[in-house]
Amino acid sequence: MMLIPCPWCGPRNEIEFHYGGQADVHYPSDPRSTSDEDWAHFLFFRDNPKGVFTERWSHAAGCRRWFTVHRDTVTNEIHPDDSASAARTVTR
Protein backbone atom coordinates (compact mmCIF):
# COMPACT_ATOMS: atom_id res chain seq x y z
CA MET A 1 0.00 0.00 0.00
CA MET A 2 1.91 2.99 -1.27
CA LEU A 3 1.63 6.41 0.30
CA ILE A 4 0.95 8.72 -2.60
CA PRO A 5 1.51 12.46 -2.31
CA CYS A 6 -1.57 14.26 -3.60
CA PRO A 7 -0.42 17.82 -4.30
CA TRP A 8 -3.75 19.10 -2.93
CA CYS A 9 -4.45 16.82 0.03
CA GLY A 10 -1.05 15.52 1.09
CA PRO A 11 0.03 11.89 1.44
CA ARG A 12 -2.83 9.42 1.26
CA ASN A 13 -3.24 5.65 0.97
CA GLU A 14 -3.00 4.16 -2.50
CA ILE A 15 -6.58 2.84 -2.34
CA GLU A 16 -7.87 6.42 -2.60
CA PHE A 17 -6.27 6.82 -6.01
CA HIS A 18 -6.98 5.77 -9.54
CA TYR A 19 -4.02 4.97 -11.74
CA GLY A 20 -3.74 6.76 -15.08
CA GLY A 21 -0.72 5.15 -16.70
CA GLN A 22 2.11 6.92 -18.44
CA ALA A 23 2.11 10.70 -18.27
CA ASP A 24 2.95 13.10 -21.08
CA VAL A 25 1.14 11.10 -23.75
CA HIS A 26 -0.36 14.13 -25.39
CA TYR A 27 -3.42 14.13 -27.61
CA PRO A 28 -2.09 14.85 -31.11
CA SER A 29 -2.65 18.49 -31.96
CA ASP A 30 -4.17 17.68 -35.32
CA PRO A 31 -5.60 14.15 -35.35
CA ARG A 32 -6.66 14.48 -38.99
CA SER A 33 -3.10 14.87 -40.21
CA THR A 34 -1.73 12.24 -37.81
CA SER A 35 -0.67 9.04 -39.56
CA ASP A 36 -2.33 5.76 -38.66
CA GLU A 37 0.92 4.62 -37.14
CA ASP A 38 1.37 7.71 -34.97
CA TRP A 39 -2.27 7.54 -33.94
CA ALA A 40 -1.87 3.88 -32.93
CA HIS A 41 1.17 4.87 -30.86
CA PHE A 42 -0.88 7.55 -29.13
CA LEU A 43 -3.68 5.09 -28.41
CA PHE A 44 -1.94 1.87 -27.53
CA PHE A 45 1.82 2.17 -27.03
CA ARG A 46 3.18 2.89 -23.58
CA ASP A 47 6.60 2.65 -21.97
CA ASN A 48 7.20 -0.01 -19.35
CA PRO A 49 10.51 0.93 -17.78
CA LYS A 50 12.37 -0.78 -14.96
CA GLY A 51 13.17 2.33 -13.00
CA VAL A 52 11.76 5.82 -12.85
CA PHE A 53 8.41 6.20 -14.61
CA THR A 54 6.52 9.43 -15.08
CA GLU A 55 2.92 8.54 -14.48
CA ARG A 56 -0.51 9.96 -13.75
CA TRP A 57 -2.68 9.44 -10.72
CA SER A 58 -6.11 10.76 -9.85
CA HIS A 59 -7.18 11.27 -6.27
CA ALA A 60 -10.47 9.59 -7.07
CA ALA A 61 -11.71 9.15 -3.49
CA GLY A 62 -10.49 12.58 -2.45
CA CYS A 63 -10.18 15.85 -4.33
CA ARG A 64 -10.64 14.19 -7.76
CA ARG A 65 -7.60 16.00 -9.16
CA TRP A 66 -5.19 14.44 -11.62
CA PHE A 67 -1.47 14.89 -11.05
CA THR A 68 1.87 13.50 -12.16
CA VAL A 69 4.55 11.74 -10.13
CA HIS A 70 7.85 10.06 -10.82
CA ARG A 71 7.84 6.56 -9.37
CA ASP A 72 10.58 3.99 -9.42
CA THR A 73 8.83 0.84 -10.65
CA VAL A 74 11.34 -1.38 -8.84
CA THR A 75 11.14 0.16 -5.38
CA ASN A 76 7.85 2.07 -5.66
CA GLU A 77 9.70 5.12 -4.36
CA ILE A 78 8.05 8.33 -5.44
CA HIS A 79 10.40 11.19 -6.17
CA PRO A 80 10.36 13.43 -3.09
CA ASP A 81 9.99 16.57 -5.22
CA ASP A 82 6.61 15.35 -6.41
CA SER A 83 4.86 16.07 -3.15
CA ALA A 84 5.97 19.68 -3.42
CA SER A 85 5.49 20.06 -7.17
CA ALA A 86 3.24 22.70 -8.63
CA ALA A 87 -0.17 21.15 -8.14
CA ARG A 88 -1.45 22.42 -11.43
CA THR A 89 1.03 20.31 -13.33
CA VAL A 90 -1.51 17.99 -14.76
CA THR A 91 0.14 16.93 -17.97
CA ARG A 92 -1.47 13.98 -19.62
Binding site: H18, G20, H26, Y27, R56, S58, A60, R64, R65, W66, R88, V90, T91, R92
Partner: peptide, 13 residues
Protein backbone atom coordinates in the same frame (compact mmCIF):
# COMPACT_ATOMS: atom_id res chain seq x y z
CA UNK B 1 -17.60 11.53 -14.47
CA UNK B 2 -14.01 10.29 -14.05
CA UNK B 3 -13.55 10.10 -17.82
CA UNK B 4 -14.81 13.65 -18.29
CA UNK B 5 -12.68 15.00 -15.44
CA UNK B 6 -9.63 13.30 -16.86
CA UNK B 7 -9.93 14.99 -20.26
CA UNK B 8 -11.01 18.29 -18.80
CA UNK B 9 -8.15 18.49 -16.31
CA UNK B 10 -5.31 17.03 -18.31
CA UNK B 11 -5.97 17.79 -21.97
CA UNK B 12 -8.27 20.79 -22.03
CA UNK B 13 -7.49 22.65 -18.78
Amino acid sequence: LAHLEDWLQTEWP
